[in-house]
Design a protein around this nucleic acid. Structure first.
Length: 302
RNA sequence: GCGCAAGUAACUCU
């Protein structure tokens, strides 16, 4: 049963809801976890009705099952229903409360989110991070920072939430300072941390900072992947530096269609038709087939 | 033991 439950989760993650459901039906002895996994599978693929229906059929619903369906409603923007279920549920745990925090934060209802945070009987690092993130995303950096300082334990997610808040507000120096500080305190940034800084540099056309983060990814023991490389290319494009964009691109061990599109897009932004065409033939030499987006970029480069 | 909650994100146009 344990294995089956896990497989439902795997199918769900890949968007194979039908497969998951077929498997679910064939499982002889289901437990609550089986049902919850299936409800979650429906929910994550936007099948709220089926999720709800199955939830109602679930025997011996526990707090996990309840949290799951509440979170499903919340994810689909049905805050009212989520709240109602939260009030109806027989018992709540820290996850239930945290779902309410993030659900309200998502809708911009910061006051409510904070009120849930204050009312909850106990908090963990996830609930703290949820509230820090809520304030940070709204640009209330002072409040976010205060809560961050106050939180008893931090992890990489908490740090990233705060950093990305500063990044989105264009407070790059502060974002970088936090980036340093997190490492001083023993936390290694991951792809998500880096991506949020890249995004900040891109959106604020901060070339100097862009180079700092690029250099960091090069010098640290850090598994950079295609997605990150592609984002660096885009970042340099938005910061207006073609040479830097080309250099990161060439440094990438693998290029996907999207990486090529990004490079060509950078050329396009700067009207470099010649280079765009060269890139087009290079990509085909590498065996990557251009798509319509590629051609749109090529055309606009000319 | 399995199922629920927190951080970022792609390329063109919008």
């Amino acid at each position: 049963v344990v294995t089956w439950n896990a497989m439902i989760g795997v199918y769900a993650q890949q968007g194979q809801v039908e497969e998951a459901y077929r498997m679910f039906q064939s499982i002889p002895q289901k437990n609550v976890a089986t049902w919850t996994a299936m409800v979650s599978a429906f929910a994550k693929n936007g099948r709220l009705q089926q999720a709800l229906q199955l939830f109602h059929q679930t025997p011996h619903r526990d707090v996990f099952a309840w949290n799951d369906i509440i979170s499903a409603f919340a994810d689909n923007g049905k805050l009212k229903e989520a709240l109602h279920l939260f009030q109806e549920m027989p018992c709540r745990n820290v996850v239930s409360w945290t779902v309410m925090i993030s659900a309200h934060a998502e809708q911009g209802k910061l006051e409510e989110a904070f009120s849930f945070f204050q009312q909850m009987p106990e908090r963990n690092v996830v609930s703290w991070t949820a509230i820090v993130s809520a304030f940070a995303r709204q640009g209330l950096l002072k409040e976010a920072m205060e809560l961050f300082i106050e939180m008893p334990q931090k992890n990489i997610v908490s740090w990233t939430a705060l950093i990305s808040g500063y990044g989105q507000q264009g407070q790059l120096k502060e974002a970088f300072h936090l980036f340093q500080q997190m490492q001083t305190e023993g936390f290694s940034p991951d792809n998500i941390t880096i991506m949020s800084i890249i995004d900040a540099c891109s959106n604020h056309a901060a070339l100097a900072e862009a180079r700092v983060i690029d250099t960091w990814t090069r010098n640290s023991i850090f598994k950079s992947d295609i997605l990150l490389g592609t984002s660096l290319v885009n970042m340099y494009g938005r910061c207006g530096s073609i040479p830097d964009a080309v250099e990161v691109f060439n440094r990438m061990p693998q290029h996907s269609l999207l990486s090529w599109n990004s490079l060509i897009g950078v050329y396009a932004q700067h009207g470099c038709g010649q280079e765009a065409f060269q890139a087009l033939s290079s990509m085909m030499l590498e065996g990557v087939m251009p798509c319509n987006i590629t051609f749109v970029s090529i055309i606009s480069a000319c």
